[in-house]
Design a protein around this nucleic acid. Structure first.
Length: 209
DNA sequence: CTACCGATATTCT
DNA sequence: GAATATCGGTAGA
């Protein structure tokens, strides 16, 4: 890790915008971060730590600078960087970025995908970096980038969360083509084809700015 | 570009 | 049993 920029000791919502433009490295691929999302410990109802410590989220309670990688929807991995002092369970989800090194390896991991889309989305990013359950608990290799002008940093509601989506703890670089596409959150019903008539206007559409 | 929908396993209730 | 910090394919504008 690079100590210049990487003061990860604060809450995730504080650290998250500073991670934009930084580069993370894992398993031969480097990604410049263009979109991140903060989860602020047990007090944040959208956080995996909202209901206290469990075997899955235990890493979030540890010291800053380590990977918390979790499995969602039965098929995808998503990668977080743990932040804050030990015990706070606060972390930053890496949502999207641009592959800046190890391009060929990233293409192999995500066949048939345009370069711009290689890490455009949290599960895509984790896949490009080769992160899975084995990554959890490993130290994060993080390097500072050139400082970004304040006006290039945008923020808005978090994506995909069922609660507290209105809290503007998603941060992204304005006009960057690798920021993930907007996807509305829809409530899921188990009966196929008979989804409940969802209320529209659940979340404002402010996708990529 | 937006919108809908199914696939899928782990986690927790 | 129910919910889930998603993605890719397909359809339509």
């Amino acid at each position: 890790m690079d100590a210049r920029l990487t003061d990860l000791s604060g809450y995730a919502d504080e650290v998250a915008p500073r991670l934009l433009g930084a580069t993370v490295r894992h398993a031969g691929v480097a990604v410049r971060l263009t979109e991140v999302e903060a989860y602020r410990g047990e007090a944040d109802p959208a956080s995996h730590a909202a209901r206290g410590r469990t075997p899955r989220n235990a890493v979030m309670y540890g010291p800053a600078g380590f990977w918390y990688v979790y499995f969602v929807y039965g098929m995808h991995w998503c990668a977080n960087v743990v932040t804050g002092p030990e015990g706070l369970a606060t972390a930053v989800l890496l949502r999207a970025g641009e592959v800046v090194d190890g391009l060929e390896l990233a293409r192999i991991r995500r066949p048939g995908v345009r370069d711009r889309d290689l890490a455009r989305g949290p599960a895509r990013l984790a896949s490009a970096l080769g992160l899975d359950s084995a990554g959890t608990g490993k130290p994060v290799d993080l390097t500072a980038g050139p400082p970004l002008p304040a006006e290039a940093i945008r923020s808005g509601p978090r994506v995909g969360v069922a609660v507290a989506a209105e809290v503007p703890w998603r941060f992204w670089i304005d006009h960057d083509p690798t920021v993930s596409p907007y996807r509305p959150w829809v409530p899921r019903r188990r009966t196929p084809g008979k989804a409940a008539t969802a209320v529209s206007g659940r979340r404002p559409a402010d996708g990529t700015g």
